[in-house]
Design a protein around this nucleic acid. Structure first.
Lengths: 220, 220, 220, 220
DNA sequence: CATGAATGAGAATTCATTCAT
DNA sequence: GATGAATGAATTCTCATTCAT
């Protein structure tokens, strides 16, 4: 079964020696930045906050990154890639359409549980960073939507899905449904029930998939 | 029929005389702020930009608003209220559930055509303004989601909608589906076909409602 | 007789009212900058030093000038112009060549007495500012050399000067002779005799002109 | 005949073995520094630029020099010394005054052709380095002017030069005439004729000497 | 000797906000 | 109301210098 922890989180699986040290500091800066961005928001985060959080000196940040914005871009590029690759793996897998959609929903909602800060930064900051409109980032996001669209087109081809709806728009609707639930969670608008937080995400995931596949309308 | 222009756009329907002048300047500042926020983003927008756009001295901004943030809040409160009232009117209307959902979808996607800057600011700025977490704003957003949830609950009560799904989560899914399509339009990821821009929004609206009601899964 | 005080020093001969206030502050910043640049050198001068010297707040400097460099450029443009105009007036005057050259020498060496800081900044800072290589500045300096060359060409035409020497190179030699004497004074390498400081500059001026016209070689 | 290459340029005429290596790196740093200072100016040159130009790690610079400033000082001291010694040799030589002055002019203008970067740094940077006011450097510059003054005094003593002019001021005038021509060349204000660049410097040198000795005034 | 990661003081610049006119 | 000059806190970024390896 596909699991949320498929999202690769450790770019630190690196070669030893000098390289390790370099990567270690760099990775600490990125981790710290995610934490700080999630807490304060990108704009209100000071570079010195990141440095303090990472436990390093101020100027070292500029040793590894040209400026504050490059940190955000790097977070996106390095961490998003792992996510997209997982989604693409799901798309290629020899499973039924419904399973694939459920896997993606579980992946996203599961990521919220495991890497809440990442999700916050992706959802709240990167998305509206001015750089987000940049071709490279749009392309990276595009990979994700294409993977979803691929699942839908395959589903239509094999008769599992209706063929009369635009798979691209449908893909947006599916992702949008997931995204807003996450946003609501991130913003605390809806709160995981205290009773069984572990069970909440899967349940919501299933609801989204269910609506997406069979609709909320009563069967006539 | 419910129309996009139900969104009230003119707080300038005000009393005459001195008061009119006051309101006129104030309204010009708000309009200018929307334009500038849509262009630059809230954080990168300078008060002087807003003043220049409004054609006034920038000290005057502080006559009408305590600070920059209050401008954003005011935009939200004054302009969002009109939107929510329209949605609530739709919810109360004696029409079928499907019609109501279609009206909301049309309202939102139509607003994008008529008041693109407003939508940009709502979607991109206010949503992630740190103030968004403020009770007053959350309440305002909540009114909107409650109106949607009300439609869904009513639909369940009268048997038009399945009763086995959480209407709150379902509401998010519906709105999220619409929202992401708008975001994609705002960011230029998907582009209205040049052939018939007028027809694009309604068509997308219908697709979203269709998926939401009947699902994309093939009828077994 | 042409006098050193022909160098216009007061751009503050301005219109009254609001304009005066604006100009007053601006002029104070420029004056303060000259003082500070002369004392510390351009590179080591902090904008805050200039502000303190001018008795104004930090940020006001940026109200009037884009950045630190623009201050230096402005000093050059506004103050150099007065100097060049004086030199051009000397060049046009209906006096003998020797008188003209003496007037220029007196002007320059006199300026050193009256506006030592200006001379320091011109000689030591502006000349090696990276911007100095800019067309507009080279042109401004060019005006000065052209005025000198004009005097020399006129002298050659009327038979007062030898015709077998390149007037352009000769102009450089004349100005260079003056300039290095000033530099030596600025740097304190040579010191005006304590006995009669007033008489030193004119005496040096006459020496430079004398050498330039009749040479130091013994008459054969 | 005295030639420009009399200026000693290779402190690398050193003993072999380990010492050679040391000196080699040191010399490379100095050469690189001259190149970089000439290109960027002292203040804007970063130590890392010098290291990159020298092809070494920038920490190594601090093995050989206490700090950035010491590099400039060293350039001045080590390279200027060779120049001054050449000038002193010219002064001592059993040649006529005019020949001596021509040799110096040729030396300086020739150096501009051979070691343009050195001249740039001497003319533009060292001269206004704040450290220029340092006794040791003033003394070094003084040696040069004293050598020139010595030539002039000797010329006066043997009747080759007029005795009624201050030899010190006259020396400044001579050097100043040369210096400004060089500055003009450095800044590109005057350009060596493309036709015969080799001949330009000597020609200018002769013009300067000619004016200095016989003046530009028409013989009455 | 060599390297380049690490440090942190320092300075420029921005811009929201205040206030005298 | 209206203006825009004045203020200064806040922050980013640079770069000389140190130091562990």
């Amino acid at each position: 079964m596909l699991r949320a922890d498929l999202v690769k989180t450790e770019p630190s699986s690196v070669s030893p020696g000098a390289t390790r040290a370099r990567s270690a500091k760099r990775a600490r800066i990125l981790d710290a930045a995610i934490t700080v961005f999630a807490r304060t928001g990108y704009h209100d985060a000071r570079v010195s906050d990141i440095a303090r959080e990472a436990g390093i000196a101020y100027g070292l940040v500029y040793h590894y990154f040209r400026n504050k914005e490059e940190i955000l871009e790097t977070i996106f590029e390095e961490r998003w890639t792992g996510f997209v690759e997982t989604v693409e793996a799901i798309a290629e897998a020899p499973t039924r359409t419904e399973e694939k959609l459920e896997a993606i929903a579980a992946l996203i909602l599961g990521a919220y549980r495991l890497r809440r800060d990442w999700v916050k930064v992706f959802v709240l900051e990167i998305q509206r960073s001015s750089r987000f409109a940049e071709p490279s980032q749009l392309r990276a996001v595009g990979r994700f939507f294409q993977a979803v669209a691929k699942i839908l087109r395959a589903g239509q081809a094999q008769g599992a899905l209706r063929g009369d709806l635009d798979p691209e728009v449908a893909g947006y609707v599916f992702v949008g449904g997931l995204e807003i639930v996450i946003t609501a969670l991130v913003l605390g608008v809806i709160r995981e029930s205290d009773a069984d937080p572990e069970a909440y995400a899967p349940k919501v995931a299933r609801t989204v998939v269910e609506i997406f596949l069979r609709g909320i309308g009563a069967r006539s």
